[in-house]
Simulated scan of single mutants.
Amino acid sequence: MTQIDYYFATLSPYCYLSGTRLEEVAAKHGATINYKPFDIIQGFGRTGGTPPKDRHISRIEYRAQELPRQAKKLGMPFNLKPAHWPTNGAPAAYAFIAAQNAGGGDLGLLAHVITRAVWAEEKDIAQDDVIRACLTEAGFDPNLADSGLLEGAETYARNLEDAVEAGAFGAPFYVIGDQRFWGQDRIEDVDLYLQGKL
């Protein structure tokens, strides 16, 4: 069975815009998704990237145009300047990892509702009540927000190392064997690759 390693960041607007399209593609091809939340800001520093706040004005201005365009194209609500961004994305990532280990819910939906909370719902994903609500919506025990924090922190750090080793330098980033795909606008390419057309 084909495995897709999905490197994502709980604070990434592009991960939000990916919605659950990757899950739809994986289901279509009988592929599994290995979710690997990681610290994208640390990832930028490790792979030659620049955090959004430190980018050249031309890149900042382009991002301000491109994100709303992509959201409109996808028919998704989007706030370019959410009330709680940046915030600490680690607690939500730790809760995601706890949910991943516990099972019983929909991880794809959980990844989406966490990012949606930031970019469409003006919520702070560093807050316990927000994380609990996300877990509940995706079919997980909300108490996972308070469990496995040490293991979550260790896995989160390990996922960063895995991302760097795999050649992932942004999010969302999809790795299938030796093939790498960067960006929510490459999900179609993932589909074509799994069809044997790329």
Rank of each mutant, 00 (worst) to 15 (best):
A157Y: 04
L67T: 08
D178Y: 07
D191H: 02
L107D: 06
A64R: 13
L67W: 12
Q65M: 15
Q65F: 14
Q195V: 03
L194F: 05
P77C: 04
L17Y: 12
D5A: 10
V130Y: 07
L160A: 08
N143G: 12
A171L: 05
R158D: 03
P172I: 14
I40C: 00
I4P: 03
R116Q: 12
A27V: 01
T32Y: 01
D106R: 01
A166T: 13
R158C: 01
A166V: 11
Q65S: 13
R158L: 07
L144Q: 04
N143V: 02
K53G: 09
A95C: 03
D5L: 07
T50P: 04
T10K: 05
Y6P: 04
S147R: 15
D129L: 12
R132Q: 14
G105T: 10
T32G: 05
E137Y: 09
E154Q: 15
A9Y: 12
L22T: 11
A163Q: 03
Q100S: 02
S18K: 08
I131V: 15
I40E: 02
P82I: 08
F181P: 04
A9V: 06
T115K: 06
Q184A: 09
F181K: 04
E121Y: 00
L17S: 13
Q3D: 07
I41D: 15
I41N: 15
R180H: 09
A157P: 02
G43R: 02
G139D: 05
D141N: 13
Y7L: 00
E161V: 12
G170D: 03
G30E: 11
A71R: 07
Y156T: 05
L150H: 11
L17V: 14
A92E: 01
G105V: 09
G170V: 14
R59V: 08
F181W: 06
A126S: 15
E23W: 08
P77Q: 08
R69L: 00
L192D: 11
H56I: 13
K53P: 02
W85F: 15
P52H: 10
L107K: 10
E154M: 13
F169L: 05
Q179Y: 07
N34F: 00
R69W: 03
F38P: 00
P52L: 11
R186I: 10
P172S: 10
L67V: 08
H112S: 02
I60Y: 09
G89I: 01
P86S: 10
E188V: 10
D178M: 04
L198G: 01
Q127R: 13
A27G: 01
D5R: 13
G177F: 09
Y35K: 06
L107F: 09
C15H: 11
L160V: 10
Q127G: 03
A153F: 09
D185Y: 02
V113R: 09
D124H: 08
N101R: 15
